[in-house]
Computed example of a mutant assay.
Amino acid sequence: DLNRVCDDIAGCTGDTAIALSRIADNGEFFETKAAYGQDIVTGFLRLNGATVGAVANRSESYDADGNKTEVSDGTLSSRGARKAA
């Protein structure tokens, strides 16, 4: 069901990579070029078994322990634009 309920999705608005992992099958989101143009998230996830690509903006970054590592003002950088393209 693409309208699946994710109770904790509201807390993921800053880092869309986390939000994408919440809606993905088995919580698996494969982010591409994670260290490049960090104001944009690109990657792949499965929804109901179908592989889909995702491109989303990001205003906050978190490390593996859940600590906030970077905050941006929401503008798109030139690296982010190249990554999204």
Results as ranks from 00 to 15, higher is better:
residue 57 N to F: 09
residue 78 S to V: 00
residue 14 G to A: 06
residue 81 A to R: 05
residue 17 A to H: 12
residue 83 K to Y: 02
residue 57 N to Q: 10
residue 42 T to E: 03
residue 81 A to H: 04
residue 31 E to P: 03
residue 32 T to N: 15
residue 58 R to V: 11
residue 48 N to T: 08
residue 8 D to T: 13
residue 48 N to D: 15
residue 34 A to E: 14
residue 36 Y to T: 07
residue 14 G to Y: 12
residue 47 L to H: 12
residue 38 Q to R: 15
residue 9 I to W: 06
residue 13 T to Q: 14
residue 67 N to L: 07
residue 2 L to S: 10
residue 60 E to W: 07
residue 72 S to M: 05
residue 63 D to W: 01
residue 23 I to T: 08
residue 43 G to N: 02
residue 25 D to Y: 00
residue 50 A to Q: 10
residue 13 T to Y: 13
residue 45 L to K: 01
residue 57 N to L: 08
residue 54 A to P: 12
residue 65 D to A: 13
residue 47 L to I: 14
residue 49 G to K: 01
residue 10 A to T: 03
residue 42 T to Q: 03
residue 32 T to L: 14
residue 25 D to I: 05
residue 49 G to V: 06
residue 58 R to N: 15
residue 21 S to C: 07
residue 40 I to M: 13
residue 82 R to G: 03
residue 30 F to V: 14
residue 71 V to T: 15
residue 18 I to S: 12
residue 29 F to G: 08
residue 69 T to C: 09
residue 74 G to E: 02
residue 23 I to C: 07
residue 16 T to H: 04
residue 55 V to I: 15
residue 71 V to Y: 01
residue 85 A to K: 01
residue 76 L to A: 02
residue 23 I to N: 05
residue 27 G to L: 12
residue 32 T to A: 14
residue 67 N to V: 10
residue 12 C to Q: 13
residue 7 D to F: 11
residue 66 G to V: 09
residue 18 I to A: 11
residue 36 Y to A: 02
residue 72 S to V: 03
residue 60 E to T: 13
residue 45 L to Y: 02
residue 45 L to H: 03
residue 81 A to I: 04
residue 57 N to E: 09
residue 33 K to F: 04
residue 21 S to I: 04
residue 67 N to R: 09
residue 70 E to S: 11
residue 21 S to G: 15
residue 46 R to F: 03
residue 70 E to G: 01
residue 17 A to I: 10
residue 80 G to S: 01
residue 63 D to Y: 04
residue 85 A to F: 00
residue 42 T to C: 14
residue 65 D to E: 14
residue 41 V to I: 14
residue 15 D to V: 06
residue 43 G to W: 02
residue 73 D to L: 06
residue 52 V to G: 01
residue 10 A to G: 10
residue 52 V to F: 10
residue 67 N to I: 03
residue 6 C to Q: 13
residue 58 R to L: 09
residue 18 I to R: 15
residue 16 T to K: 07
residue 30 F to N: 15
residue 59 S to V: 15
residue 85 A to E: 03
residue 65 D to W: 00
residue 65 D to S: 11
residue 43 G to H: 01
residue 5 V to H: 07
residue 5 V to C: 05
residue 70 E to Y: 09
residue 51 T to V: 09
residue 31 E to L: 09
residue 34 A to L: 10
residue 16 T to D: 10
residue 32 T to G: 12
residue 74 G to H: 00
residue 49 G to Q: 07
residue 72 S to N: 15
residue 35 A to H: 12
residue 42 T to K: 08
residue 40 I to P: 05
residue 19 A to W: 12
residue 68 K to W: 05
residue 82 R to H: 04
residue 24 A to I: 13
residue 77 S to K: 00
residue 51 T to L: 04
residue 22 R to P: 05
residue 73 D to R: 04
residue 50 A to K: 11
residue 51 T to D: 02
residue 18 I to C: 07
residue 73 D to A: 07
residue 51 T to I: 07
residue 41 V to T: 13
residue 79 R to T: 06
residue 72 S to A: 01
residue 71 V to Q: 15
residue 11 G to S: 08
residue 38 Q to L: 01
residue 64 A to G: 06
residue 29 F to Q: 11
residue 67 N to E: 08
residue 68 K to E: 14
residue 4 R to D: 14
residue 79 R to Q: 13
residue 72 S to H: 14
residue 74 G to A: 02
residue 63 D to R: 01
residue 15 D to R: 06
residue 21 S to M: 10
residue 47 L to M: 12
residue 79 R to N: 11
residue 58 R to T: 14
residue 67 N to Q: 11
residue 44 F to Q: 11
residue 65 D to M: 05
residue 64 A to W: 00
residue 78 S to T: 04
residue 3 N to S: 12
residue 85 A to M: 02
